[in-house]
């Protein structure tokens, strides 16, 4: 019996060294250690042994089994690694082939800029107001201190629907509408994004374009507050290293009025082609709300004051993305839109 076992062990060990695939190893396990395997058979035959021999042979058989198991798992491990290595070597791919991703669309660049402007002012506590694009002459002009025949009407050639109704030439009429709606409550702190229309069509003018108007009315609003607000906006919009400057200007509905320039981002203010060698880029118009506009809106200019500003979204978009022709924004060429 013992000899039989020793023989078996020797034979099995030899056989094992020749195994090189998982399949063969599996056969090996079945052959020796399976239900009907040789070693199992021998162990089953132990009943015929004497009671002295049984524990000795039993122990020997167990030792052989353990040792075979150990060798088997060792070989198994090696074979497994070899097989995986082999499989992996067949599975290599061209890692330089392009990735496959779902198609993403784009927001229109004007919308991206509009959203950014809105976010900045919402963050500063403003709400977003809207108003009709087909507007009464009264709100577009008269309520903003621009009576009929005012020379300032020269600056904006308008599209009329009837004598009293036109396509708004600015988002400013919403100033007047908001005051009417809100009076006598304070504060008013709004921005008004939207489409506006003027009879102009060339590389720097489009008959339809977008503006964002801002209006703040409260007790004790000062010109200095306008400066601070616009500086904060410009730095959030264009970068914290930017500066602004205000130049006196004229708008019928604000006084004092100011054009606002932001320092040129291309040259940092030293002067370059983008800023026409001035170091500055014009971005918006602004000013202290004219007392007559407050009066017409139902507020007492001795008790409250306010500031207003208005910016052209196309202008800012063109500055931000370095565009040279406004018409690109309305041609909707996919190759253009794809870039944003």
């Amino acid at each position: 019996m013992r000899e039989k076992l020793e023989m078996l062990k020797k034979r099995a060990q030899e056989e094992l060294t020749g195994c090189s695939s998982l399949e063969v190893l599996n056969d090996f396990r079945v052959k020796y250690m399976g239900k009907k395997g040789e070693l199992t058979q021998i162990l089953r035959g132990m009943g015929q042994l004497s009671s002295e021999e049984r524990p000795i042979i039993g122990q020997l058989a167990n030792e052989i089994r353990d040792s075979l198991e150990a060798s088997l798992s060792k070989v198994l491990q090696n074979v497994k690694i070899k097989e995986i290595e082999q499989r992996l070597s067949h599975e290599s791919i061209d890692v330089t082939m392009p990735g496959v991703a779902p198609n993403l669309g784009r927001r229109h660049p004007l919308e991206l800029v509009l959203n950014r402007i809105e976010e900045i002012f919402v963050g500063m506590g403003y709400t977003i107001e809207e108003g009709p694009e087909i507007e009464l002459d009264y709100y577009n002009f008269e309520a903003l201190n621009i009576p009929k025949d005012h020379p300032a009407r020269d600056m904006q050639d308008s599209f009329y629907i009837t004598k009293d109704v036109l396509l708004r030439t600015q988002t400013s009429p919403v100033q007047a509408r908001t005051m009417e709606k809100m009076r006598p409550n304070l504060p008013i702190k709004i921005i008004v994004p939207g489409k506006v229309y003027r009879r102009d069509d060339d590389a720097t003018h489009s008959p339809m374009f977008h503006q964002v108007e801002g209006l703040v009315i409260d007790e004790n609003i000062r010109f200095s507050d306008l400066k601070g607000t616009l500086l904060s906006f410009a730095q959030q919009m264009f970068g914290s290293e930017r500066n602004i400057r205000l130049r006196p200007s004229f708008f019928p509905f604000t006084e004092p009025s100011a054009e606002v320039d932001v320092s040129c981002g291309v040259c940092g203010g030293a002067g370059c082609r983008t800023c026409k060698h001035t170091g500055w880029l014009e971005i918006l118009g602004s000013g202290i709300v004219h007392p007559r506009v407050l009066e017409m809106g139902g507020y007492d200019p001795e008790k409250v004051s306010g500031f207003a500003f208005g910016m052209g979204v196309e202008r800012i978009t063109m500055l931000k993305y370095d565009l040279d022709d406004m018409r690109l924004l309305f041609e909707n060429d996919i190759r253009f839109l794809h870039q944003f």
Binding site: V122, I128, D225, K227, S232, A258
Partner: peptide, 23 residues
């Protein structure tokens, strides 16, 4: 303001009560 120089006017933010900005 014009003759004094806009650049010399201080830079401040509105002092009133804070407002909740929203859409």
């Amino acid at each position: 303001a014009r003759l004094y120089g806009y650049d010399k006017i201080p830079t401040t933010l509105p002092q009133g009560a804070t407002t909740q900005g929203k859409r």
